[in-house]
Protein backbone atom coordinates (compact mmCIF):
# COMPACT_ATOMS: atom_id res chain seq x y z
CA UNK A 1 0.00 0.00 0.00
CA UNK A 2 1.15 3.47 -0.69
CA UNK A 3 2.66 5.48 2.04
CA UNK A 4 1.18 8.88 1.55
CA UNK A 5 2.70 11.94 3.10
CA UNK A 6 0.63 13.15 6.01
CA UNK A 7 -1.36 16.35 5.60
CA UNK A 8 -0.37 16.70 2.00
CA UNK A 9 -1.83 19.72 0.31
CA UNK A 10 -4.93 19.54 -1.90
CA UNK A 11 -4.20 19.33 -5.59
CA UNK A 12 -7.67 19.23 -7.04
CA UNK A 13 -10.52 20.95 -5.25
CA UNK A 14 -14.17 20.62 -6.13
CA UNK A 15 -16.40 22.97 -4.17
CA UNK A 16 -20.18 23.17 -4.40
CA UNK A 17 -20.30 21.70 -7.90
CA UNK A 18 -23.77 21.73 -9.46
CA UNK A 19 -24.70 20.33 -12.86
CA UNK A 20 -28.25 20.22 -14.18
CA UNK A 21 -29.48 18.62 -17.38
CA UNK A 22 -32.45 19.71 -19.39
CA UNK A 23 -33.95 23.16 -19.52
CA UNK A 24 -37.22 24.91 -18.86
CA UNK A 25 -39.25 23.91 -15.87
CA UNK A 26 -38.30 20.25 -15.72
CA UNK A 27 -34.61 19.77 -15.08
CA UNK A 28 -32.66 17.00 -13.54
CA UNK A 29 -29.91 17.87 -11.12
CA UNK A 30 -27.20 15.31 -11.79
CA UNK A 31 -24.67 16.78 -9.39
CA UNK A 32 -25.89 18.73 -6.37
CA UNK A 33 -23.35 20.82 -4.45
CA UNK A 34 -20.65 18.19 -4.37
CA UNK A 35 -17.42 19.14 -2.64
CA UNK A 36 -14.23 17.16 -2.13
CA UNK A 37 -10.52 17.50 -2.60
CA UNK A 38 -7.83 15.29 -3.99
CA UNK A 39 -4.58 15.61 -2.08
CA UNK A 40 -1.18 15.15 -3.61
CA UNK A 41 -0.12 11.53 -3.72
CA UNK A 42 -3.37 10.00 -2.57
CA UNK A 43 -5.93 7.78 -4.28
CA UNK A 44 -9.41 9.15 -3.82
CA UNK A 45 -12.37 6.94 -4.61
CA UNK A 46 -15.61 8.45 -5.91
CA UNK A 47 -18.22 5.78 -5.37
CA UNK A 48 -21.90 5.58 -6.22
CA UNK A 49 -24.42 3.65 -8.25
CA UNK A 50 -25.08 4.52 -11.87
CA UNK A 51 -26.93 7.81 -11.96
CA UNK A 52 -25.31 9.03 -8.76
CA UNK A 53 -23.49 11.79 -10.61
CA UNK A 54 -19.97 10.49 -10.29
CA UNK A 55 -19.23 10.46 -14.01
CA UNK A 56 -20.82 13.86 -14.48
CA UNK A 57 -18.62 15.23 -11.72
CA UNK A 58 -15.55 13.97 -13.49
CA UNK A 59 -16.75 15.21 -16.86
CA UNK A 60 -17.20 18.68 -15.40
CA UNK A 61 -13.76 18.49 -13.91
CA UNK A 62 -12.20 17.50 -17.23
CA UNK A 63 -14.02 20.20 -19.15
CA UNK A 64 -16.29 17.81 -21.03
CA UNK A 65 -19.39 19.34 -19.45
CA UNK A 66 -20.03 22.90 -18.40
CA UNK A 67 -20.91 23.07 -14.70
CA UNK A 68 -23.82 25.23 -13.56
CA UNK A 69 -22.30 26.32 -10.29
CA UNK A 70 -19.38 25.72 -7.96
CA UNK A 71 -15.65 26.12 -8.17
CA UNK A 72 -13.15 23.72 -9.68
CA UNK A 73 -9.56 24.33 -8.80
CA UNK A 74 -6.41 22.58 -9.85
CA UNK A 75 -3.24 23.63 -8.03
CA UNK A 76 -4.34 27.24 -7.83
CA UNK A 77 -5.83 27.33 -11.33
CA UNK A 78 -9.51 28.13 -11.66
CA UNK A 79 -10.70 25.46 -14.09
CA UNK A 80 -13.81 27.37 -15.00
CA UNK A 81 -11.79 30.27 -16.34
CA UNK A 82 -8.66 28.96 -17.92
CA UNK A 83 -6.21 31.09 -19.79
CA UNK A 84 -4.59 29.44 -22.76
CA UNK A 85 -1.40 28.73 -20.84
CA UNK A 86 -3.30 27.38 -17.85
CA UNK A 87 -5.37 25.18 -20.15
CA UNK A 88 -2.18 23.72 -21.59
CA UNK A 89 -0.74 23.08 -18.17
CA UNK A 90 -3.92 21.47 -16.91
CA UNK A 91 -4.26 19.25 -19.96
CA UNK A 92 -0.70 18.03 -19.70
CA UNK A 93 -0.72 17.45 -15.94
CA UNK A 94 -4.15 15.89 -15.53
CA UNK A 95 -4.92 12.86 -17.64
CA UNK A 96 -7.83 10.50 -17.80
CA UNK A 97 -8.62 6.84 -18.40
CA UNK A 98 -12.09 6.22 -19.75
CA UNK A 99 -14.55 3.53 -18.85
CA UNK A 100 -14.90 1.72 -22.13
CA UNK A 101 -11.59 0.71 -23.73
CA UNK A 102 -13.50 -0.48 -26.78
CA UNK A 103 -14.53 3.02 -27.75
CA UNK A 104 -11.90 5.26 -26.21
CA UNK A 105 -9.13 4.42 -28.68
CA UNK A 106 -9.28 5.88 -32.17
CA UNK A 107 -9.75 2.86 -34.45
CA UNK A 108 -7.93 4.60 -37.29
CA UNK A 109 -4.71 5.20 -35.39
CA UNK A 110 -1.95 2.78 -34.58
CA UNK A 111 -1.11 2.13 -30.97
CA UNK A 112 2.12 4.05 -31.45
CA UNK A 113 0.29 7.14 -32.61
CA UNK A 114 -2.39 6.85 -29.95
CA UNK A 115 0.08 6.66 -27.11
CA UNK A 116 2.28 9.37 -28.63
CA UNK A 117 -0.55 11.87 -28.97
CA UNK A 118 -0.20 13.52 -25.54
CA UNK A 119 3.53 13.92 -26.23
CA UNK A 120 2.84 15.47 -29.59
CA UNK A 121 0.37 17.89 -28.12
CA UNK A 122 1.97 18.72 -24.80
CA UNK A 123 5.72 18.40 -25.29
CA UNK A 124 8.33 19.48 -27.79
CA UNK A 125 10.00 16.08 -28.09
CA UNK A 126 11.40 15.03 -31.43
CA UNK A 127 9.60 12.19 -33.12
CA UNK A 128 12.36 9.69 -32.31
CA UNK A 129 12.37 10.78 -28.69
CA UNK A 130 8.62 10.42 -28.68
CA UNK A 131 8.92 6.94 -30.06
CA UNK A 132 11.43 5.90 -27.40
CA UNK A 133 9.20 7.27 -24.71
CA UNK A 134 6.16 5.46 -26.13
CA UNK A 135 8.01 2.14 -26.24
CA UNK A 136 9.19 2.65 -22.69
CA UNK A 137 5.66 3.38 -21.60
CA UNK A 138 4.17 0.42 -23.44
CA UNK A 139 6.69 -1.85 -21.76
CA UNK A 140 5.82 -0.35 -18.43
CA UNK A 141 2.18 -1.35 -18.87
CA UNK A 142 3.18 -4.80 -20.07
CA UNK A 143 2.98 -4.43 -23.82
CA UNK A 144 5.94 -4.67 -26.14
CA UNK A 145 7.31 -2.45 -28.87
CA UNK A 146 6.09 -4.95 -31.43
CA UNK A 147 2.56 -3.60 -30.93
CA UNK A 148 3.44 -0.08 -32.09
CA UNK A 149 2.06 -0.43 -35.59
CA UNK A 150 -1.00 -2.44 -34.76
CA UNK A 151 -4.51 -1.06 -34.55
CA UNK A 152 -6.75 -1.13 -31.48
CA UNK A 153 -9.08 -3.71 -32.99
CA UNK A 154 -6.47 -6.44 -32.65
CA UNK A 155 -6.25 -6.05 -28.88
CA UNK A 156 -8.40 -7.46 -26.14
CA UNK A 157 -10.27 -5.28 -23.66
CA UNK A 158 -7.63 -5.56 -20.99
CA UNK A 159 -4.86 -4.82 -23.45
CA UNK A 160 -6.75 -1.83 -24.73
CA UNK A 161 -7.16 -0.49 -21.24
CA UNK A 162 -3.40 -0.90 -20.74
CA UNK A 163 -2.91 1.14 -23.90
CA UNK A 164 -5.28 3.78 -22.56
CA UNK A 165 -3.30 3.86 -19.33
CA UNK A 166 -0.05 4.18 -21.26
CA UNK A 167 -1.51 7.09 -23.19
CA UNK A 168 -2.65 8.78 -20.00
CA UNK A 169 0.73 8.41 -18.33
CA UNK A 170 3.10 8.96 -21.22
CA UNK A 171 3.52 12.69 -20.79
CA UNK A 172 4.18 12.35 -17.07
CA UNK A 173 1.01 13.75 -15.52
CA UNK A 174 0.63 14.46 -11.81
CA UNK A 175 -3.02 13.51 -11.63
CA UNK A 176 -4.79 10.55 -13.15
CA UNK A 177 -8.56 10.47 -13.35
CA UNK A 178 -9.99 6.99 -13.84
CA UNK A 179 -13.66 6.73 -14.80
CA UNK A 180 -14.62 3.17 -13.88
CA UNK A 181 -11.61 1.83 -15.76
CA UNK A 182 -12.40 -1.82 -15.14
CA UNK A 183 -16.18 -2.01 -15.18
CA UNK A 184 -16.28 -2.78 -18.91
CA UNK A 185 -13.75 -5.58 -18.50
CA UNK A 186 -14.07 -9.24 -17.78
CA UNK A 187 -13.88 -10.02 -14.08
CA UNK A 188 -10.75 -12.08 -14.61
CA UNK A 189 -8.98 -9.10 -16.15
CA UNK A 190 -10.17 -6.49 -13.72
CA UNK A 191 -7.65 -7.42 -11.05
CA UNK A 192 -4.77 -7.19 -13.50
CA UNK A 193 -5.69 -3.72 -14.62
CA UNK A 194 -6.25 -2.63 -11.03
CA UNK A 195 -2.85 -4.02 -10.14
CA UNK A 196 -1.32 -2.10 -12.97
CA UNK A 197 -2.96 1.14 -11.86
CA UNK A 198 -1.83 0.62 -8.30
CA UNK A 199 1.65 -0.16 -9.50
CA UNK A 200 1.82 2.94 -11.64
CA UNK A 201 0.44 5.12 -8.88
CA UNK A 202 3.20 4.02 -6.56
CA UNK A 203 5.98 4.13 -9.11
CA UNK A 204 5.12 7.54 -10.50
CA UNK A 205 3.74 8.93 -7.21
CA UNK A 206 0.52 9.92 -8.92
CA UNK A 207 -2.56 11.41 -7.38
CA UNK A 208 -5.51 9.39 -8.55
CA UNK A 209 -9.21 10.16 -8.65
CA UNK A 210 -10.85 6.80 -9.05
CA UNK A 211 -14.52 6.40 -9.97
CA UNK A 212 -16.27 3.14 -9.18
CA UNK A 213 -19.78 1.89 -8.74
CA UNK A 214 -19.09 -0.58 -5.97
CA UNK A 215 -16.93 -0.60 -2.91
CA UNK A 216 -15.28 -3.92 -3.66
CA UNK A 217 -13.10 -2.51 -6.40
CA UNK A 218 -11.92 0.57 -4.57
CA UNK A 219 -11.25 -1.00 -1.24
CA UNK A 220 -7.82 -2.14 -2.08
CA UNK A 221 -6.90 0.90 -4.09
CA UNK A 222 -8.12 3.99 -2.33
CA UNK A 223 -6.85 5.97 0.61
CA UNK A 224 -9.98 8.02 0.98
CA UNK A 225 -13.53 7.72 -0.29
CA UNK A 226 -16.40 9.98 -1.28
CA UNK A 227 -19.79 8.30 -1.49
CA UNK A 228 -22.27 9.82 -3.91
CA UNK A 229 -26.00 9.20 -3.97
CA UNK A 230 -28.36 10.96 -6.40
CA UNK A 231 -25.83 13.68 -7.03
CA UNK A 232 -25.15 14.36 -3.35
CA UNK A 233 -21.97 13.47 -1.48
CA UNK A 234 -23.47 11.59 1.44
CA UNK A 235 -20.30 10.50 3.14
CA UNK A 236 -16.57 10.95 2.88
CA UNK A 237 -13.64 9.82 4.91
CA UNK A 238 -10.58 7.64 4.97
CA UNK A 239 -10.86 4.08 3.83
CA UNK A 240 -10.74 2.71 7.35
CA UNK A 241 -13.43 5.10 8.49
CA UNK A 242 -15.77 4.32 5.67
CA UNK A 243 -15.27 0.58 5.75
CA UNK A 244 -14.98 0.29 9.52
CA UNK A 245 -17.70 2.62 10.61
CA UNK A 246 -20.01 3.71 7.80
CA UNK A 247 -22.21 6.58 8.90
CA UNK A 248 -24.74 6.88 6.13
CA UNK A 249 -27.32 4.13 5.46
CA UNK A 250 -26.52 4.29 1.76
CA UNK A 251 -22.86 3.56 2.45
CA UNK A 252 -23.89 0.64 4.59
CA UNK A 253 -26.10 -0.65 1.80
CA UNK A 254 -23.20 -0.38 -0.63
CA UNK A 255 -20.95 -2.20 1.80
CA UNK A 256 -23.47 -4.94 2.29
CA UNK A 257 -23.46 -5.51 -1.45
CA UNK A 258 -19.77 -6.41 -1.44
CA UNK A 259 -19.48 -10.19 -1.72
CA UNK A 260 -17.17 -12.07 0.62
CA UNK A 261 -15.69 -15.50 0.46
CA UNK A 262 -17.21 -16.58 3.75
CA UNK A 263 -20.42 -18.66 3.62
CA UNK A 264 -21.33 -18.28 7.26
CA UNK A 265 -20.69 -14.57 7.25
CA UNK A 266 -22.55 -14.30 3.98
CA UNK A 267 -25.67 -15.79 5.58
CA UNK A 268 -25.50 -13.29 8.39
CA UNK A 269 -24.96 -10.49 6.00
CA UNK A 270 -27.95 -11.52 3.94
CA UNK A 271 -30.01 -11.35 7.10
CA UNK A 272 -28.77 -7.91 8.00
CA UNK A 273 -29.32 -6.75 4.43
CA UNK A 274 -32.94 -7.79 4.65
CA UNK A 275 -33.33 -5.97 7.92
CA UNK A 276 -31.77 -2.92 6.42
CA UNK A 277 -34.19 -2.99 3.55
CA UNK A 278 -37.07 -3.33 5.98
CA UNK A 279 -35.97 -0.37 8.03
CA UNK A 280 -35.44 1.68 4.89
CA UNK A 281 -38.81 0.92 3.45
CA UNK A 282 -40.62 1.26 6.73
Amino acid sequence: MSSQPLASRPLLTVDGLVKRFGSGNRTHTAVDKVSFELRAGEVLGLVGESGSGKSTTVRCLMGLERPDAGTLDYDGINLRRLTYAQQRRFRSEVQMVFQDPYSSLNPRMTIGRIVAEPLRVNTKLSSSARRDRVVEMLELVGLGAEHLDRYPRSFSGGQRQRIAIARALVSGPRVLVCDEPVSALDVSVQAQVLNLLKDMQEKLSLSVLFIAHDLAVVRYLCDRLVILQNGVAVEQGSRDEVYGDPQHPYTRALLEAVPRADPAGERMRRQSRLELIETRTA
Binding site: R91, D100, V121, A164
Partner: peptide, 13 residues
Protein backbone atom coordinates in the same frame (compact mmCIF):
# COMPACT_ATOMS: atom_id res chain seq x y z
CA UNK B 1 -17.52 9.21 -29.40
CA UNK B 2 -15.31 8.32 -26.49
CA UNK B 3 -12.04 8.38 -28.42
CA UNK B 4 -12.65 11.96 -29.47
CA UNK B 5 -13.35 12.90 -25.87
CA UNK B 6 -10.25 11.12 -24.71
CA UNK B 7 -8.20 13.05 -27.25
CA UNK B 8 -9.86 16.22 -26.04
CA UNK B 9 -8.86 15.70 -22.43
CA UNK B 10 -5.36 14.97 -23.64
CA UNK B 11 -5.22 18.55 -24.85
CA UNK B 12 -5.66 18.12 -28.60
CA UNK B 13 -6.91 21.32 -30.21
Amino acid sequence: SAYVESARVTGVS
